Amino acid sequence: MPTRLAFLGPVGTYGEQAARVLIEQAALEDVQLVPCVGLRSVVEQLAGGQCDAAVVPIENSVEGGVTATLDALWSHPELCIRRALVLPIQHALLGSGPLSRVTEVLSHPQALAQCSGWLAQHLPDALQLPTSSTAEAARMVAGSPFRAAIASQTAAREHGLDQLAFPVNDVAGNRTRFLLLRRGQRSEHGDVASLAFSLHRNAPGALLEALVCLAERGLNMSRIESRPSKRELGEYVFFVDVDLPPAPSTALADLIAHLQPLCEHLAHFGAYPSRDLSGC
């Protein structure tokens, strides 16, 4: 049976690009790519057993955390992260007509935000319409003389579109980090470990007490992000990435043992290798 891997579709998304690189890095064989509509659906396909793996974006260097992925991970703490990949993102404006006729620009909300400055300068009157993915935007504008999509150059080839402008992202160093998710046993060794937790109490010093657990063990926290718990106003879930020392090390197990009593819920997504393609 092939390994079914879910990603944010349709074909031509940055998620598909990341998935193909991660498949090679993880030495996965006989892989069937399964495009999904929406990031929550990508995670649900894995959690529900319809797929064996999934690739999702977790954060962007310009717009920050991908909230749909964070919320989906908190809903499925049984999943684990096997690998991370930082992918350079260069957006193009794609269409079937001239730039002068464009009155609507479609893309994923994060892509629209990453190109907001360019759009304000070059297409200030164009209506911006959100879609489920950049490649879905490319599919939707094909054949229209007045619609354009912000997507990858790969999406232009997949959907038969012309490149009207490139690059259109506001920040040259725009990058997105993607995760390879699986079910099964978590690794305790790798470059990075990812945790998420909620605290027993909302009181002065409660979060500091949790973070002291990292400092006391000399562990660098490379990312922290909060999301509403969705139970009541002012209650949050914290997502933390921790840089790990070289193996063998008991640092992660020791951290979890001391952090656990301070948390109402603690999700450990495992340790994993991370690679940055920005310099490649």
Rank of each mutant, 00 (worst) to 15 (best):
F7R: 04
L8K: 07
P10V: 07
V11D: 07
G12P: 12
T13Q: 03
Y14M: 11
R20Y: 00
V21K: 12
V21W: 03
I23Q: 06
A26W: 01
A26Q: 15
L28I: 02
L28H: 03
L28Y: 05
E29K: 10
Q32W: 05
Q32D: 04
V34H: 05
P35N: 00
V37M: 08
V37Y: 06
L39N: 00
V43Y: 07
V43W: 12
G48V: 02
G48S: 09
Q50D: 07
A53I: 00
A53H: 08
A54F: 02
I58N: 07
N60E: 13
N60R: 12
S61N: 05
S61L: 10
G64C: 11
G65R: 08
G65F: 15
T67R: 14
L70I: 03
D71W: 10
D71S: 11
A72H: 01
W74A: 13
C80V: 15
I81V: 15
I81M: 10
V86M: 08
H91D: 09
H91I: 00
H91K: 01
A92L: 01
S96A: 06
L99R: 10
T103F: 04
E104K: 05
V105Q: 04
H108G: 10
Q110G: 13
A111H: 12
G117L: 09
L119N: 02
Q121S: 11
H122W: 12
D125I: 00
D125H: 09
A126Q: 05
Q128P: 04
Q128I: 01
Q128K: 12
P130T: 13
A135V: 05
A135H: 04
E136D: 14
E136F: 09
A138I: 02
R139G: 02
V141W: 09
G143H: 02
P145R: 11
R147H: 14
R147Q: 10
R147N: 11
A148F: 06
Q153A: 14
T154V: 10
E158P: 00
E158V: 15
H159A: 13
L164W: 03
F166I: 05
V168A: 05
N169A: 06
G173D: 13
R175K: 14
T176S: 15
R177F: 04
F178E: 09
L180A: 08
E188Q: 14
H189F: 06
G190P: 09
D191W: 07
D191C: 10
S194Q: 12
S194W: 13
A196G: 09
L199P: 14
H200F: 05
N202S: 12
N202I: 09
N202C: 02
A203L: 11
G205P: 02
A206N: 10
L208D: 11
L211E: 07
L214W: 13
E216I: 01
E216V: 08
S222F: 02
E225N: 11
R231K: 06
E232I: 01
G234H: 03
G234V: 03
G234E: 12
Y236H: 13
V237S: 08
D241Q: 14
D241K: 06
D241A: 08
V242T: 14
P245E: 10
S249T: 15
T250I: 00
L252A: 06
L252I: 08
A253F: 04
L255E: 07
L259Q: 10
L262H: 07
E264G: 13
G270F: 05
L277A: 01
S278D: 00
S278W: 06
